[in-house]
Amino acid sequence: MSEKLVGKADAREVLVTDWCLGAEDRHTVSARWPASHPFYTQRSSRFSPLLFTETVRQALGLLAHTAYNVPPDYRMGWDSYRSSVDPEALRAHSGFSDVVLTVRHRSHKARRPGGPVRLMAEVDAVRDGAYLGTAEIHYTAFPPALYDRLRGGRTDSRTAFAEALRPEAPVPAHLVHRVRTGDVVLSPTPEENIWQLRTETSHRVLFDHPHDHVPGMVLLEAAHQASLLTVGSGEAQFTGARFDFRRYVEFGRPCWIETIPLLSDPRGLNLTRVTGVQDGEEAFSGTLTTVVRGSRARSSI
């Protein structure tokens, strides 16, 4: 598997192992999860739901190039992301596990010469034959010239990395299901339910190659960590996510992660709204659903 097809520089972080292009825009992508991952394995010996998200991200990058002939120099970004996951399917095993994604592209607008490609995919996933989760993603692939205009010429990734703010002190790792402080992407502020985004550009998983803006996976990790801090329970497990991405987040200026608790009921079900704000403008926003371990509450969004 070529790392370039899935948007990774480090071969150790490539999860996808094979794919099969089918008829009527229905394709199958196979992946393999390790027994443990240096970043996506949490303190509870469960995988983060973002391992599922990263698997989906790699699969869509692969299919964009192989099934829909998106040129390799096009830049892809997500417009919206919806997912539902079974927390029990995220338990770590003693060995490798096989994940199979069935991907249906409900729409894909063919590009005009020099134009973008807009796609929408629905994903169903199983892990070792058992239900894992579902996702729906709207995403766009931009040609280099158009991407450069959208970014206002700020496309030099090494310059962007050099301008990254020095990370402030992190929140305690155990509060966000982490073991290592280097895996924490939030810093505390004096304001309740507001944190500053931390971008440790030396992190080998979140930043395995230079980027000209903060990647969406980092923003989603920040949202997940902020949701855990808002719920305030080390037993909380994620079951669903809904996010829209509106603006690029730059490295050289503060980005604030803000939360509002929308629901917390006696069954252990929690719904948290998370917003990322930079320069007074909303960059992304959405909701995360968690359930406290041991509760009978179940949710799918």
Rank of each mutant, 00 (worst) to 15 (best):
Val185Ile: 00
Ala23Glu: 14
Pro210Met: 12
Ser107Ile: 12
Ala135Val: 09
His27Glu: 02
Asp148Asn: 10
Arg154Lys: 15
Pro49Tyr: 01
Ser227Asp: 08
Ala9Leu: 12
Ser45Tyr: 04
Thr55Met: 03
Thr102Ile: 11
Val29Lys: 03
Asp244Arg: 15
Cys255Arg: 13
Arg149Val: 14
Ser264Cys: 13
Ser94Met: 09
Gly268Arg: 02
Glu282Tyr: 04
Gly114Ala: 06
Arg242Met: 11
Leu90Met: 10
Ala297Phe: 01
Leu269Gln: 11
Leu5Tyr: 05
Pro261Asn: 03
Phe96Ala: 15
Val277Ile: 12
Glu136His: 03
Asp86Gly: 03
Leu262His: 08
Glu191Asn: 02
Ala9Ile: 06
Val184Ile: 01
Ala145Leu: 13
Ala125Asp: 07
Ser295Pro: 07
Ala130Gly: 02
Ala35Gln: 13
Val126Trp: 04
Ser94Lys: 09
Glu250Gly: 11
Val292Lys: 03
Tyr81Trp: 07
Arg104Lys: 07
Gly7Trp: 01
Ser36Trp: 09
Asp25Thr: 08
Pro190Gly: 02
His138Leu: 13
Ser45Val: 08
Val291Gln: 07
Pro210Ser: 12
Glu200Thr: 05
Gly268Asp: 02
Val291Ala: 08
Phe96His: 13
Glu3Gly: 13
Val184Pro: 00
His93Glu: 14
Val56Asp: 03
Gln196His: 14
Thr230Glu: 05
Leu186Pro: 00
Glu3Val: 15
Glu258Gly: 08
Lys109Arg: 15
Ser233Gly: 06
Thr41Ala: 12
Gly114His: 08
Arg267Tyr: 00
Met76Thr: 12
Ala11Asn: 11
Leu62Val: 11
Leu229Asn: 05
Pro210Ala: 15
Tyr81Phe: 12
Thr272Arg: 02
Lys4Cys: 12
Leu263Pro: 03
Gly268His: 01
Ser83Cys: 13
Tyr248His: 13
Leu5Trp: 04
Asp25Tyr: 08
Lys8Phe: 01
Glu235His: 08
Ala135Glu: 05
Val277Gly: 01
Phe142Leu: 15
Leu263His: 14
Glu221Met: 05
Leu288Asp: 00
Trp19Asp: 10
Ser187Phe: 01
Arg127Met: 05
Phe251Ser: 02
Trp33Met: 00
Glu200Cys: 05
Val176Thr: 05
Val29Cys: 02
Thr102Cys: 11
Tyr131Leu: 08
Ile137His: 01
Leu51Val: 05
Leu62Ile: 09
Gln278Thr: 07
Thr287Tyr: 08
Asp212Ala: 11
Trp33Gln: 00
Thr28Asp: 05
Pro215Leu: 10
Ser264Phe: 09
Val205Gln: 00
Ala35Pro: 07
Val29Ile: 06
Ala241Lys: 04
Gly216Cys: 01
Leu228Gly: 07
Glu13Asp: 06
Met217His: 13
Arg247Phe: 01
Gly276Glu: 10
Thr28Lys: 12
Val171Asp: 06
Arg293Tyr: 03
Thr272Leu: 09
Ile260Cys: 14
Ser84Pro: 04
Gln225Lys: 01
Gly22Val: 06
Glu250Ser: 14
